[in-house]
Write a protein that binds this DNA or RNA. Sequence first.
DNA 1: TTGCTATTCAACTACATGCTTGAATACCAT
DNA 2: ATGGTATTCAAGCATGTAGTTGAATAGCAA
Lengths: 113, 113
Amino acid sequence: MSDPLSTTLAALADPTRRAILARLATGEASVNELAEPFEMTLAAVSKHIKVLENAGLITRGKQAQYRPCRLQAAPMRDVAGYLNSYRGFWEQNLDQLDSYLTTLQTPQSDTKN
Amino acid sequence: MSDPLSTTLAALADPTRRAILARLATGEASVNELAEPFEMTLAAVSKHIKVLENAGLITRGKQAQYRPCRLQAAPMRDVAGYLNSYRGFWEQNLDQLDSYLTTLQTPQSDTKN
DNA sequence: TTGCTATTCAACTACATGCTTGAATACCAT
DNA sequence: ATGGTATTCAAGCATGTAGTTGAATAGCAA
């Protein structure tokens, strides 16, 4: 799983990690602060943070014994760019929704685009 | 991994599956057609398709012995919506880029372990 | 019927992931 | 130095995922 897009998407595909990012959207935080809302151990949160860091979604600072995390949203922009190439399809799908639902009720399909 | 956003992101976090979606952006295709560019077996591609289907990213039709796949981009729209809530951050990060790069040059060597 | 094509299932292997516990490291304060 | 706080490492476990092979299912064609 080496390509950056896969790495970013995989990092985002976890509710704990998304919650961490959401928290970081309100400002820098230490590992302990980030771990506080969760029931898992610090070590587990530390690993999640490493995944996010590896994906470039956060960067770490250094203040005394703290290594605070900071949100770095650039990889999200890349994902958004990727998804944007499909924008026409989901808009189109809204238009196609009727005919698609109709299709489900009909024995044969009229597949046109 | 029950929430829809995680399911969609995980489904997208694989190059093979993204290639399948890219192919489907050009129109419906059968499993055989979708499998053709890859070196893996049909059964493997079939599993990837099941992941995409489970994420709602494709729907299946039925024509004779074929069960053609069709792109369904609505879940991507949801992901785009999620990412959009961070848009301010990646735009901001562009402004911050200088100071960030400057930070990297500062005697603060905090690499890996 | 028989056989061909398309697709999936079942069982299995190999490896990745999420989590735990307990020990280690690193920095700060006294 | 001693101890406290913050964070990570190492080992292990349980589960999930990507892939394989070989057999099964299902519809189409003679």
